[in-house]
């Protein structure tokens, strides 16, 4: 009856898996949304022969995947969490690769008047003072953690915020969609914002503060903890990521003419 067709389909399915140099790396949504991975992955495959399978998650889940040994390496941007990860023995070491920056997005008419403030901390305070709608990722991602840090620096107490503060527990794109729908303020990485296709009335209102810089670091999962981790591949990948090809591709990557990332890895 239909069995020959099925077995043919199954055969194709099974043949597709099980290739040689594959490794899994957890990266953050903001990194993936930037589109840089689509430039880097083919170059990595061509120059090192490694197929990197990306798991696109929040920083929180990326760290957990590393802890459980479900990925071979992670590429995230949350300094304190990264240090704790390495200290607890889950990762061998932390290697800085590049940085980009966050921007404060909001409705073009800027009801909280954040654009004219002198620093991001004052801008955040202005949002809270105006009780203007604000969308928070709420997913323990690097972006979310940075937002929490900023509220803390602004000496604001989130539990006492009213309805205007919306924690959506979603990735950057979904959170931007929500902000666009509500015409709300939101903290986003620049890349996700530039690649976002549903901007609506939103615009970049505040940028450039040093506190908005966002350092990406690469951490291989410790093979002594998880023996199935492909240590040779993670070493090769690290060597490539801090090398000249990576530097040229990262510094040369632009969206709408804007440079997004700055390569800052120290040579080994």
């Amino acid at each position: 009856m239909k069995l020959p067709v099925l077995s043919a389909v199954l055969a194709i399915g099974l043949a597709a898996s099980a290739m040689a140099d594959e490794m899994k790396m957890a990266v953050t949504t903001s990194f993936h949304n930037s589109g840089l991975s689509e430039i880097l992955l083919p170059a990595i495959e061509e120059e090192t022969g490694i197929t990197v399978e990306l798991l696109v998650v929040g920083t929180g889940q990326a760290l957990r995947l590393g802890e459980a040994g479900d990925v071979d390496a992670i590429l995230v941007h949350s300094r304190a969490a990264e240090d704790a990860f390495v200290e607890a023995g889950y990762g061998t070491h932390r290697r800085e690769i590049m940085y980009n920056d966050f921007v404060l997005i909001g409705p073009e008419d800027d009801p909280a008047s954040v654009a004219e403030k002198d620093g991001i901390v004052y801008a955040m305070q202005a949002v809270a003072a105006a009780k203007a709608p604000f969308v928070s990722r709420g997913d323990e991602s690097g972006t979310h953690k940075r937002e929490l840090d900023l509220w803390e620096l602004a000496e604001m107490d989130i539990p006492r915020f009213g309805d205007w503060y919306r924690s959506v527990g979603a990735g950057m794109g979904a959170a931007l969609n929500t902000a666009s729908g509500m015409n709300a303020y939101i903290l986003s990485d620049r890349a996700s914002w530039l690649n976002f296709g549903n901007k609506g009335d939103l615009a970049v209102l505040f940028e450039g503060d040093a506190m908005l810089f966002n350092q990406y670091a690469y951490i291989p999962v410790d093979p002594e903890r998880h023996e199935h981790v492909k240590a040779d591949l993670t070493d090769t990948l690290e060597a490539w990521l801090v090398g000249e090809s990576a530097a040229a591709l990262i510094d040369g990557y632009t969206i709408e003419g804007e440079k997004l990332f700055t390569f800052n890895a120290q040579g080994s």
């Binding site: 899994k24 399978e53 990306l54 696109v56 794109g173 969609n177 690649n195 296709g197 549903n198």
Partner: peptide, 25 residues
């Protein structure tokens, strides 16, 4: 599945991904 490009990305997870990017088209 993890929605890995070229490995475990299927129609539904790809849709979720594109929606996340705001790429409704």
């Amino acid at each position: 599945g993890g929605n890995i490009d070229n490995a475990t990305r299927v129609l539904t997870t790809a849709i979720a991904l594109e929606t996340g990017k705001g790429d409704f088209g």
